[in-house]
Design a protein around this nucleic acid. Structure first.
Length: 420
RNA sequence: GCCGAGGUAGCUAAGCCCGGAUUACGGCGCCGGCCUUGAGAGCCGGUGGUGCCCUGCACCGCGGGAGUUCGAAUCUCCCCCUCGGCGCCA
């Protein structure tokens, strides 16, 4: 969430920002209205408390008559205070609702645009493979090699779930290990957090309330299946105050991610958009002065995964209309899938400035004697497994229907070179 | 799930039984001042959040919430978390 003071004092620039991001402006108007009412009432409540505190202090020293009188008066004051408190609680709740749905302010380098058509191509890397046969898509390859089983995935969990089998399952595991090892060498600490998270966590990273219908929810315990490892990993440091020399903190995590993808079932062919998928995640907690430089590092670290795998890819800088709610700047990495002739988003690297840190109360002390400030958080997928799998199967397929295993993965599969 | 012990400021830790003057005792760390050639020691002050008519004033703050009361860190109830023991279990 944004700083409330900042919203109060810069409402017009916030309004322009909402416009650029295709967000309605009514949340802002409502905020300003409720906030004013709240502040007025806080002042009134404080006056009454002051009166009560002063009188309560005098009461033991008074004589019977006057004492009775004062106590009677204070009863009335106490009633009025609880009325005000109740009203304040309502207003705070209301105000919070509005603040929590105002998105982060984009960095000045972010292009203004309406949607994905206005994203900026930053660079394109790797050769796009020319086949002298008609390349198959990953669904066909997966079925022909008997390594992806959609039917049985649907049987045990439902449509949008799939089973990896044999070399498919081994490839998945190999890719995860490779990614984690790579990131560890880049300086990230590997963590394996809980897969389910509580409500504070999904509020902390910004999925709740805006995306709540896209998450799986265990009602009895009010627990949520994480939609991305960003949630448990970022919230590891919830409510903590770090020392300056602890920053930057870099974590990498392998974790399954769950998304209900409500209302998107038509698109769900193959494993490009599924309800449960594996992902290796990168999360950084950094000093506010370094956040955009750190974003560039994070992007390169994620990009390394695709580069090492020898896949063609491109980097996009997302425009205001296409970025995520909590992000101030986002790069997408898209990998090319020749079988279906499309670019697939396999990683999204974002800087969140203090937007998540404020929600999750993650702070640091700039100097031992100074007041704590919010850290900046960043996150990137490094990378999503299913789409990487699609790109490998489609780019590395051979005329005879086999798939060559990328060089860098072979050691992770006991030297195996081919899936056949 | 059961029993017990806890949760107080950046850390540490009094107060709780017995409600009202301890500014929420004290210590550590850190900052400022005095002193010193400099440092240390010593002494003095400061060291959470919010609101406003922002060199100041007020309010809040003792795990969270509700209640009793003129007044709650302190009494009552509910909940959460941590630690220890028992139980159950892959």
């Amino acid at each position: 969430m944004l700083n409330i003071d900042h919203i109060r004092e810069n409402s017009e620039s916030i309004r322009a920002m909402l416009h650029n991001r295709n967000y309605p402006e009514d949340a802002l108007d409502s905020f300003m209205r409720v906030d004013l009412a709240w502040r007025t009432l806080v002042e009134e409540g404080n006056q009454l408390r002051r009166q009560r505190n002063q009188v309560a202090e005098q009461i033991p020293k008074l004589k019977d008559e006057e004492k009775k009188e004062r106590i009677k008066e204070m009863k009335a004051v106490a009633n009025r205070i609880s009325e005000i408190d109740a009203k304040l609680a309502e207003l705070e709740l209301e105000r919070n609702e509005f603040v929590l749905v105002i998105p982060n302010v984009p960095h000045e380098s972010v292009p203004i645009g309406a949607g994905s058509g206005d994203n900026l191509l930053v660079r394109q890397m790797g050769e796009i493979c020319q086949f002298d046969f008609k390349p198959k898509d990953h669904i066909q390859i997966g079925e022909d090699l008997d390594i992806i089983d959609f039917k049985r995935g649907a049987k045990v969990a439902g449509s949008g779930f799939y089973v990896l089998k044999g070399d498919g399952a081994r490839l998945e595991r190999a890719l995860i290990s490779f990614m984690l090892d790579l990131h560890r060498h880049q300086g990230y600490t590997e963590v394996f957090p809980p897969i389910v998270v509580n409500r504070a966590a999904v509020i902390g990273t910004g999925q709740y309330p805006k995306m709540k219908d896209d998450m799986y929810w265990c009602e009895r315990d009010d627990l949520w299946l994480n939609p991305t490892a960003e949630v448990p990993v970022t919230n590891l440091l919830q409510d903590e105050i770090l020392e300056r020399d602890q920053l930057p903190i870099s974590y990498t995590a392998y974790l399954p991610s769950f998304r209900r993808e409500a209302g998107r079932s038509a698109e769900m062919k193959g494993i490009i958009r599924v309800h449960e998928f594996n992902k290796v995640e990168l999360v950084k907690f950094v000093h506010p002065d370094n956040s955009y430089a750190e974003l560039e590092h994070l992007l390169v670290d994620a990009e390394d995964v695709i580069r090492c795998l020898g896949l063609p890819y491109r980097i996009l800088l997302l425009c205001t209309g296409d970025m995520g709610f909590a992000s101030s700047k986002t790069y997408d990495i898209e990998v090319f899938a020749p079988g279906s002739d499309q670019w697939l988003e396999c990683s999204s690297c974002s800087c969140f400035t203090d937007f998540q840190a404020r929600r999750a109360r993650i702070k640091f002390r700039p100097e031992p004697h100074l007041k704590s400030e919010f850290v900046h958080t960043l996150n990137g997928s490094g990378v999503a497994l299913p789409r990487t799998m699609v790109a490998i199967l489609e780019n590395y397929q051979n005329p005879d229907g086999t798939v060559t295993i990328p060089d860098i993965i072979q050691p992770y599969m006991q030297g195996q070179e081919l899936i056949d």
